[in-house]
Amino acid sequence: MAVSKRKRARVVRGVQYGILVAVVILVILFADWGAIRDAFFNLDAAGTQVPQIFTSALVNTALYTLLGFAFGLALGLVLALMKLSSVPPYRWLATIYIEFFRGVPALLVFITLGFGVPIAFQIKFGLYTTVMLALGLVGAAYMAETIRAGIQAVPKGQLEAARSLGMSHGRAMITIVIPQAFRIILPPLTNELILLTKDSSLIYVLGLAREEYDLTKFGREGLNETSSLTPILLAGLCYLIITIPLSYLSRYLERRTGRKKAAADTAAALEVKG
């Protein structure tokens, strides 16, 4: 009975490690490695994918994502300001927009923009415009909430100081509050960029020419042509080439913000002592 707390914690952790190792060993023993190698690590199939998967598909995915992110960021900022507006109809409009586009699958937005809008209005957007609008419309709904939170996180005194120097409300927002808000929300915005990178794969519903393929579409075509899953694995790795640096960037930015605050606290403490 007299097992100390620390000893019990060690036993529990040992059991957890044991289960983990057992699972890994079972997977290694029972998986059909020959079949896996043929399916996923087929060098001939991989050879058919390079270099286009890097020079075309990876570039396209990055481009589609950036277009959507840029438009979404701009629209998200407008929506955030509407949401914070003192004019009730602006707030309602922004809320309706955000609730709608957060609740609807991005795929439906792509289909609507690609096929519904041309039928309804006799407008045919180009591929880049459609991608920008579709990803941007969806991304804006998420980013608006992030940006609104960022603006609200800027201390009220900053706006008051700006106003007391004679700046109009608009100028104070543009030169003082919004720049500070974006510093605060850089880490979550980087996460939005990662999510949009993956959502850009939905572009396949628009029907693409070969040189317009994004990574996922490129990988699926590769699967059809080579009857190997290797192209899919390659496409997945290409996504990681984009997203892993981004998530490191996000973490770095988060740490830097934290460190700045810590440095300020230390400086203040030193000043008091010295």
Binding site: Q158, A161, S164, P179, R183
Partner: peptide, 20 residues
């Protein structure tokens, strides 16, 4: 009011320097 405030300097308890 923006014009009028130019001639009125204000110093706050919490300084409110623009942190960026």
């Amino acid at each position: 009011i923006d014009k009028a405030r130019r001639g009125i300097g204000m110093v706050f308890q919490s300084f409110n320097l623009f942190s960026h």
